[in-house]
């Protein structure tokens, strides 16, 4: 690709991103307001239920909830463009401030989890494919099937029960012990259980995917030729089969990012881990509109970005050298005799 073309290519992508974000924000904004529930509760707490209609009207006016939804949206969008996302009803401070305090925790949990999943899935997948239908493969597959059937939250509970309640070697909740915020060791201790859940929750899906993709490759004819020319099993597996699988794996792993991040939301709730997962859960339940908007925009942005990354990876691989044939052009299939 020439320089100009690349600008054009990425320019189009960026435009697409901005457009989808705009659409997303509007949809979320609208849905959030359509949903039943009382936003005032999140701001005024219990008091909201005892308000007189006049008081309510006044409160709603103050929070800007009386105007038609579309007008509200325009108002919000104007602020958002200038970087002002409003205040959180519950925390009574700037939304960005609230999020800034939490997002680091989630990134640590999700980010390290992602890397672990990426590496472990690759390792397990290759291991299984190498020993196809022999003891290690069957063993890993059995374990994988059972583990992937265990709901994350239940596994968390059992692990808490074992390690925190009975053995008392690991903390059961939070990101740090109060008063020891700076200590890395303490943080790591708090991360062990949530991390274990994040990894086991997603690992198997990707490990099995790698395994099956390699097994498909291993059945291709070129493996026979590689073998006939005297290459070792190791060289064929890593130099040829894995090489063919990697692009697809990368693009799927790109899409996995939102899934893994989304998974942390549940885990954060179970472990009362102060991340944005717990935050979004609260904001959705208690109609903390401004907070919800930003959190949805962040999640949505991650989803869209990762999608685009996956698509770009797919587009960068020349379809003609892509392993496996996906003939989408239906008419051309019948071409010739």
């Amino acid at each position: 690709m020439s320089g100009k073309k690349i600008y054009f290519y990425y320019g189009r992508k960026a435009l697409g991103f901005i457009l989808s974000m705009a659409v997303l924000s509007f949809v979320v904004f609208y849905i959030a307001r359509l949903a039943p529930g009382d936003a005032l509760v999140s701001y005024y707490g219990e008091r909201a239920e005892k308000m007189t209609p006049a008081e309510r009207a006044f409160a709603e006016e103050r929070l800007g909830l009386r105007a038609p939804v579309f007008v509200q949206y325009i108002r919000w969008a104007k602020g958002a463009i200038q970087g002002d996302f409003g205040i959180s009803y519950k925390y009574k401070m700037d939304v960005m401030e609230v999020i800034r305090g939490r997002i680091g925790n989630t990134l640590i949990l999700g980010g390290i989890g992602f890397i672990l999943i990426f590496v472990l899935a690759l390792f397990l997948g290759i291991l299984c494919a190498w020993y196809e239908d022999r003891f290690p493969d069957r063993m890993i597959c059995k374990i994988g099937i059972v583990t992937s059937c265990i709901p994350e939250f239940w596994l968390s509970l059992v692990l808490i029960l074992i390690f925190a309640v009975y053995l008392r070697i690991l903390p059961s909740s939070g990101a740090y012990t109060a008063g020891r915020e700076g200590e890395i060791g303490d943080r790591i201790l708090h991360l062990v259980l949530p991390m274990a859940i994040v990894v086991t929750g997603h690992l198997w899906y990707y490990a099995f995917m790698i395994r099956n993709k390699i097994l498909e490759e291993v059945r291709a004819d070129y493996v026979l030729l590689a073998k006939a020319k005297g290459l070792s099993k190791c060289k064929i597996m890593f130099g040829q089969c894995l090489r063919n699988v990697m692009p697809a794996y990368l693009s799927i792993m790109a899409i996995s990012i939102p899934h893994i991040m989304g998974g942390t939301y549940i885990i954060e709730t179970v472990f009362s881990y102060p991340g944005i997962g717990t935050l979004s859960y609260e904001s959705a339940r208690f109609k903390d509109y401004n907070l919800l908007m930003v959190l949805c925009m962040i999640s949505g942005g991650v989803v869209i970005l990762c999608n685009m990354a996956a698509q770009t990876i797919n587009e960068q691989i020349d379809p003609r050298i892509r392993p496996g044939r996906e003939n989408e052009t239906s008419e051309v299939e019948g071409f010739g005799g």
Partner: peptide
């Protein structure tokens, strides 16, 4: 595809 990439639970 977009639907697939959004975590189901969310």
């Amino acid at each position: 595809e977009i639907l697939l990439s959004v975590p189901n639970l969310l």
